[in-house]
Design a protein around this nucleic acid. Structure first.
Length: 296
RNA sequence: GGGUAGGUGGUCGAGUGGUUAAUGGCACCAGACUGUAAAUCUGGCCGCGAGAGCGUACGAUGGUUCGAAUCCAUCCCUGCCCA
């Protein structure tokens, strides 16, 4: 629904109060425990008693995927509906939101880390092109949309084939063979670009004041593996600082910059969703709530 | 004041007489996105123009040359060293 914390949390909680709703987060980093400040997770006080789901429940040392998300979030949504309440999905991870919007049915497969590592190694030794060619042989159609340099996606095509014996194209097609599960409306929050960036910069300064560095320090002490959690903006940069690779100033600038770029990418993602209603976050919360109430 | 290194497009930084509107990186803008997604990848990026093209650019000015970001002169500015 929107990026970061730039008014979204407030508006979603206010809306929940008005329409007797409960909130389902769609954020790939707020799922993790102990990553509160840097992921801009809403606090208990902010929640004002409104139930929140898909938040703060995964160990940072664990791997979590869209498929997991889709399954669990769908269950949450159904439970909320069963209670006679309205689910409000809030968050900025386009991929997760997509899984819900299109009701994607992910096949039941596990990650084969060994094979992944093997492919990584091959890419290093023989070059990515070698994997690319291999993938083309398996699934020419899917490869049409994948760049020769896109290692992750190339590996995925190979991985899918190894695990399921099917091509990604086939699997994708199958995953869409179902009715739209829910009736929904999509709202996107946005504001003038320079205002947005200004807010992001300020927000990062606040995170630092709230103790981001301490939070990251504790996290690093607690775990020694982070398959995905350490990809989080704010965390990886702080780690670089703690490891003495960059200065504190560089760290702060980098977090701000990466967050700005992320917000921009989110906008790109959301723009392609059809039938969306855009909310201008420079307007008052009241105005935006009214706008939402009008169409639901 | 003397010596020395240098001033290049938003920025960092190549380039050291023609093939250079000027390699790259970054920022910025736009796009893609089905199991790592706050990740990963793609395109654009001096101005005007649909385009051919035209114009303006490598601190400033002047000069050498068929031709200069690149050579010369003077000036301005910056870093470092000596005084």
């Amino acid at each position: 629904m929107d990026q970061l914390h730039l008014g979204k949390t407030g508006i979603s909680i206010e809306l929940a109060k008005r329409i007797d709703g409960e909130i389902v987060s769609a954020d790939s980093m707020q799922i993790y425990k102990y990553m509160d400040i840097g992921s801009a997770k809403p606090t208990k006080e902010e929640m004002q008693g409104i139930p929140h789901y898909m938040l703060d429940f995964v160990e940072p040392s664990k791997r979590y995927s869209v498929a997991d998300y889709k399954k669990e979030a769908t269950k949450c949504i159904k439970d909320i509906i069963k209670k006679g309440k309205i689910p409000i999905v809030v968050g900025g991870t386009g991929l997760y939101i997509n899984s819900l919007i299109y009701g994607i049915n992910y096949a039941d497969t596990k990650i084969d880390q060994e094979y992944r590592d093997l492919l990584e190694k091959e890419a290093e030794e023989k070059g990515l092109d070698s994997l690319y060619e291999k993938a083309c042989k398996i699934d020419k159609e899917a490869m049409q949309n994948i760049s020769r340099n896109d290692k992750k996606r190339i590996i995925r095509v190979l991985e899918i084939y190894k695990q399921t014996g099917k091509t990604k194209t086939e699997l994708d097609k199958q995953s869409l063979q179902n009715e739209k599960e829910f009736d929904f409306k999509v709202f996107i929050t946005n504001m003038q670009r320079d205002k947005l960036y200004e807010k992001i910069n300020k927000r990062v300064d606040i995170m630092l004041e709230q103790g981001l560095i301490e939070e990251v320090k504790k996290l690093l002490e607690k775990y020694n593996e982070y398959p995905t959690a350490m990809q989080a903006i704010g965390y990886k940069e702080t780690k670089l600082y703690l490891d003495g690779i960059i200065t504190k100033e560089e760290m702060i600038e980098k977090i701000k910059m990466e967050t700005r770029r992320y917000a921009k990418r989110q906008l790109t993602w959301f723009r392609q969703i059809e039938d969306t209603i855009w909310l201008d976050m420079e307007d008052s919360e009241e105005t935006n709530i009214d706008k939402i109430l009008e169409v639901i």
